[in-house]
């Protein structure tokens, strides 16, 4: 464990922050511009995983384990969310035969 922490600390923290922000931004852009629901979900996962990486890095730098525990919470809840989300996508696919979100435009004013 100690070597992992020292290895993590070998890279300056600013690099982690920058790297994770870039991944997060890629995720956000993916959600906003992609039209396929599955790809949107992958982009959301990218956002969550950039958060996980940053939490682990901060945790190693602060010498505080709570950040890593939080990563487990994020993973567990993200898994629960994906399970429900995929079920919803399957349900929508059965009705519309499509996973394109442009097909979803019935509710409008």
């Amino acid at each position: 464990m100690e070597t992992v922490v020292t290895n993590l600390q070998g890279v300056p923290i600013n690099h982690y922050i920058l790297f994770c922000s870039i991944i997060f931004a890629i995720g956000v852009i993916g959600v906003l511009i992609r039209r396929n629901v599955i790809v949107i979900m992958m982009s959301v996962e990218l956002m969550l995983n950039s958060v996980n990486l940053l939490l682990a890095a901060f945790s190693a730098y602060k010498g505080d384990a709570s950040g890593q525990v939080f990563v487990f919470f994020v993973m567990a809840l993200a898994a629960a969310e994906v399970a429900v989300g995929l079920a919803i996508i399957v349900m929508v696919y059965r009705n519309t035969r499509s996973v394109d979100i442009n097909a979803l435009s019935r509710l409008k004013w």
Partner: peptide, 26 residues
């Protein structure tokens, strides 16, 4: 159909906003 559509929109927006919330917490 409208219930399906509402669920999918709610799910996508909910997951998206959770990402922002988590990044803020981090």
């Amino acid at each position: 159909f409208s219930s399906n559509e509402a669920a999918l929109k709610y799910f996508l927006m909910g997951a998206f906003s959770t990402g922002f919330l988590l990044f803020g917490i981090t």
